[in-house]
């Protein structure tokens, strides 16, 4: 599993798309933190509203992740499973190790990529602000973990990489909109999006992040079950 994790991580980090995304996230984190440092009155004003200084500094990064997270994760990991089944390299992997190990390795490799990316951004923010907002950091990582699990699930049930690329773009745009709208508008057809997508839970107290974490794990376990039964 560890070798698949390493391969997944290095393949992710070496891709042009990933490099662009890392640069974008890091740049936004740096610039937004620098802007706030140069405008301390903004922090004191927001402080009067009850918002902590750490939250203000990481707000830029959180906003980017919550808006573009689906798009970014799908851009890198939409073919995390089906590229191997399409190219038949999965056959080679399953002759050497178990299918759940392959799936765990891939999930953890993709997760590690995002942990590193977000940690670098948080490190930059903390260098400027001297604050590491641990709660927001975990919230962001759980949000991304949920999306990675969804990407793994979609990549497992959809065999064609071209189709998952298309779906990734579509869902990457649609899901944040649906998730946000479902929190504001109380319509029956938006209820599933409210409770299945992570946005609603992230707006609640910290304990609620366990729910998207659990939903993500369910997506992943379903992917493992499907993969276990499949002819490769």
């Amino acid at each position: 599993m560890i070798h698949i994790l390493k391969r997944e991580f290095t393949d992710s980090i070496k891709s042009i798309r990933a490099i662009l995304i890392i640069l974008f996230i890091t740049f936004v984190s740096y610039k937004s933190a620098l802007f706030l440092k140069e405008n301390p009155f903004l922090i004191s004003e927001l402080g009067k509203e009850g918002i902590k200084a750490g939250d203000v500094y990481s707000a830029g990064l959180s906003l980017i992740v919550f808006i573009f997270g689906f798009l970014f994760v799908f851009a890198i990991s939409h073919d995390i499973v089906n590229s191997e089944t399409e190219m038949k390299t999965m056959r080679l992997l399953v002759t050497k190790t178990s299918r759940p190990q392959v799936m765990f390795g891939k999930l953890l490799g993709a997760t590690l990529f995002w942990v590193v990316t977000i940690s670098v951004s948080y490190a930059i923010i903390s260098l400027i602000s001297q604050v590491w907002n641990g709660e927001e950091y975990l919230r962001t990582l759980i949000f991304l973990f949920y999306i990675i699990c969804l990407a793994v699930f979609i990549s497992t049930i959809v065999p064609k990489t071209k189709l998952t690329m298309f779906l990734g773009i579509l869902l990457g745009i649609a899901l944040p909109i649906l998730g946000s709208v479902s929190m504001i508008i109380d319509k029956w057809y938006l209820v599933p999006f409210k409770y299945i997508l992570p946005f609603y839970y992230l707006d609640q107290s910290f304990g609620y992040v366990l729910i998207p974490l659990a939903i993500g794990i369910i997506f992943f376990l379903m992917s493992v079950l499907i993969m276990e039964r499949r002819d490769l």
């Binding site: 190219m87 038949k88 390299t89 056959r91 080679l92 002759t95 050497k96 190790t97 178990s98």
Partner: peptide, 19 residues
């Protein structure tokens, strides 16, 4: 089968290589 996979060497097909 997973228990003995390390004792089996398989050459399935050349189409399965990482190009």
């Amino acid at each position: 089968l997973d228990r003995v996979k390390k004792k089996i060497g398989v050459m399935p097909d050349i189409a399965n290589l990482y190009q």
